[in-house]
C-alpha cells in the first residue's frame, strides 16, 4: 500500500467523492421511505437495514480500503464476522428460550 502514484490518488479521490454522494443519497432514501409508512413493520425494518448495510459496506470497502487490503486484515475481520453472527444467533436463541410457566407477549 505504500507506493501510491499521484494518478492513483487522483483516481481514489474520485471514488471517495462518489461514495460520499452515494452515502448522502442512501440517507435521503432511508428517511424518505420512512415517511411513506408501510403497513408491514417487517418490510419497514428490512428496507431500513438493507440500505444501512449497503451504506456500511461502502464505508468499509472504500473509506477503510477493505476492498484492497492485506490477508492479515481479512483474517481478523473473518473472525469478527464469525463471532458477530454467532452473537446474533445467541440473541435469537435467547428470544425463543424462556423458562416454562412464564408468559411472553
Amino acid at each position: 500500500m505504500s507506493d501510491h502514484s499521484h494518478q492513483d490518488i487522483a483516481k481514489h479521490v474520485k471514488i471517495y467523492i462518489t461514495v460520499f454522494v452515494a452515502l448522502l443519497v442512501g440517507t435521503i432514501i432511508t428517511v424518505a421511505l420512512n415517511y411513506l409508512h408501510f403497513d408491514s413493520m417487517a418490510l419497514t425494518i428490512a428496507i431500513a437495514l438493507f440500505v444501512a448495510t449497503i451504506k456500511a459496506a461502502l464505508v468499509a470497502c472504500y473509506f477503510m480500503h477493505l476492498i484492497s487490503e492485506r490477508k492479515m486484515i481479512y483474517l481478523i475481520m473473518a473472525f469478527t464476522v464469525f463471532f458477530f453472527i454467532g452473537l446474533m444467533f445467541l440473541t435469537l436463541g435467547a428470544h425463543y428460550d424462556y423458562p416454562p410457566n412464564t408468559t411472553t407477549l
Binding site: 440517507t27 432511508t30 428517511v31 420512512n34 419497514t44 425494518i45 431500513a48 437495514l49 440500505v51 444501512a52 451504506k55 456500511a56 464505508v59 468499509a60 473509506f63 477503510m64
Partner: peptide
C-alpha cells in the same frame, strides 16, 4: 486515526435508522 473515525461513522449508519426511524 481515520480508520477509527470511519468505524464511528459506520456505527452511526446503523444507530440512526434503528433509533430514529424504526
Amino acid at each position: 486515526s481515520g480508520l477509527f473515525w470511519h468505524f464511528v461513522d459506520l456505527v452511526w449508519i446503523f444507530l440512526f435508522p434503528v433509533l430514529y426511524l424504526l
